[in-house]
Nucleic acid binder design. Structure first.
Lengths: 338, 338
DNA sequence: AGGTTTGTTGCATACGTTTTCAATTACGCT
DNA sequence: AGCGTAATTGAAAACGTATGCAACAAACCT
């Protein structure tokens, strides 16, 4: 029934009221019972829905959030996106999705693109932002929240798990398990998350008097992580435990140890990951890992972003969310460990 | 430097030209060398970028594509989204992402939401559309392309792999491998892809004189598939080969057989999947599977959608893309098979 | 009853752009 | 020089909505 384009004016004519009346009904402003009824009836009959772009022009609020994400091969991100999208939809916002490689100039151009859509805010998922860009966003008055990545210099808000503390927990667990030669395939050291986890891990080892772990940067990449695992095992005294900077790389390490080198996990080597993506619970890996609480991180991200949108004068926030160590079968479990 | 909102009028004033001139420079219409230079200079200095929403209002083209997707836990979809987003970005379009559970009324409201953003087109990834909704989209003159799902009744365009043919190939491969008791954990029979694969598979078996396979619907769900595997193996004459309707479920089946029932793959049971997601190549699974060529499917999707956008009178298209069987180690390989 | 508050309504304007149209300028040619 | 054609330009209208303002009606109070 409904023809191509039906505007508020069409509805107004059919309902016998002014265009403003129609607008008021749909924007929740006050109107009398009778007009509301007339407008609603006409609108239903014509299949009218307000044009959000036109609305955005007037109000200056597009109710669009730009989501910038680097890659989707790490299962953690699809999951986060799914939750983010749902949480934002419930609040009346929608996501404009942008894929950006991790090159700085790529990010740059992509963010500029986003601005032209007049997004109300931006969420970056594991993307590093230059301080130049940071400033430009601030100048444009457009809130940015970094999900699962911090940026030391910038004044931007960020939501992460408690990575330093997480690294410590893993170290304590491995030490309690009686491991003597502990190694580390690190998360990308160019990222705050990677650095923090490594730092907490090494600090706890040092405090316990353990030797510093043999460490290789796995770059959050499967192949790099697999190569790192090979290299570690070629040593004259190979490790009996490896902390891997995220689950995605941990799977690669486990595959390499088991099917390429022929080792048993955890009998020969204990493996601990970070994230607790769904796959970590699959029987094939059964990975002991430090959980990043996606749901709470998403909630915090949405809350922070919308708060900054509604009150631009609001300061930036830096939220860290603590997660538990999920104990499964990929690492030797210390006596009497809960 | 750039202040909050800089419009074409600001640029015009600084460049000493009319606002129309600025518009012409940025919309690629003709202008003299000198004006172009003046405008460019002023725009750069002010950090001006045209407001795409305002542009969309008058042109009627938002350059936004709505992407509706049900779930993201099957790795096939993140991958497809990544590619889709990139392909569309290259063509000047961007993606408005919507998560929709698979409930019909959810889809309904979500699509209506999309319309209010004046999207130029919609891609649905593995979502079923009611014929009512189909009609409304057609009435609105808004092109829809279904990715990895067909809809028999509707006149909408769809891009799928050659599912019937794919099912046949798997059957032929398993028969050639000398398997006598072939079972099937089917893709969701409420979806065209699931039905087609099953149909091709069963048809080929029947033509070869093999008994019809024991079949259970796995609903594209891990838990359901795992339960199906258990049930199949409890039979007095358990299967020596299982064709699973997609890789995502195949992983669950393999986990169950190996770690719960203690069977070896492929020595005790051969497993074949469908999709060839990246994980299928991982050593832990090393899954023989029928590849869905994501890249070509994405290309076809984008081409079809943009073609329909540019020429609304264009008819709908139903593209099927053939994929090869990727032979790995999860199924017995017939003698001399390439 | 009269004055005051409260609520409802329509008119007109604004948002930032593209695009038509007419006017002006530049240019080629005899 | 002069004329015709092409290229360039600015003014103004449009896109679909929200909203300030003034007008008006209704209700309330003393």
């Amino acid at each position: 029934m409904s023809d191509a384009k039906v505007t508020s004016l069409d509805v107004a004519r059919m309902a016998g009221v002014s265009q403003s009346a129609v607008s008021r009904v749909f924007s929740g402003a006050s109107a009398s019972k009778t007009t509301i009824a007339k407008v609603r009836a006409a609108a239903d009959r014509l299949g009218y829905r307000p044009n959000r772009l036109a609305r955005a022009m007037i109000t200056g609020k597009s109710r669009i959030i730009g989501l910038v994400v680097a890659y989707l091969d790490n299962q953690f991100y699809p999951l986060a996106i799914e939750r983010l999208s749902q949480a934002l939809q419930e609040r009346g916002y929608h996501i404009l999705l942008i894929m950006a490689g991790n090159s700085p100039e790529g990010i740059e151009s992509v963010m500029a693109d986003l601005m032209t859509y007049q997004v109300d805010g931006i969420i970056t998922a594991s993307v590093a932002m230059s301080s130049d860009l940071t400033e430009r966003c601030a100048a444009m008055g457009i809130p940015v929240v970094m999900f699962n990545r911090g940026q030391d210099g910038s004044g931007l808000s960020s939501i992460t798990s408690a990575n330093v503390e997480g690294g410590r927990k893993v170290a304590e667990f491995l030490l309690a398990g009686g491991h003597g030669r502990i190694a580390h395939v690190a998360g990308w050291q160019g990222s705050s998350t990677g650095r923090d986890r490594t730092q907490g891990f090494c600090a706890a080892l040092a405090e316990a008097g353990a030797p510093p772990p043999e460490t290789i940067d796995g770059m959050y990449d499967r192949d790099t992580a697999a190569a790192a695992a090979r290299k570690l095992m070629e040593r004259p005294e190979p490790p009996d435990a490896i902390f891997v900077g995220n689950d995605h790389m941990a799977f690669a390490v486990m595959d390499t140890l088991r099917h390429e080198i022929g080792l048993r996990i955890p009998a020969d080597v204990s493996i601990v990951g970070y994230d607790d993506v769904p796959m970590a619970a699959w029987a094939a890996y059964d990975l002991t890992t430090l959980r990043q609480p996606v749901n709470r991180m998403v909630e915090a991200t949405v809350d922070t972003l919308l708060a900054e949108i509604e009150d631009p004068a609001r300061g930036h926030e830096r939220v860290e969310i603590t997660g538990p160590l999920i104990i499964r079968g990929s690492a030797r479990v210390p006596e009497g460990w809960t």
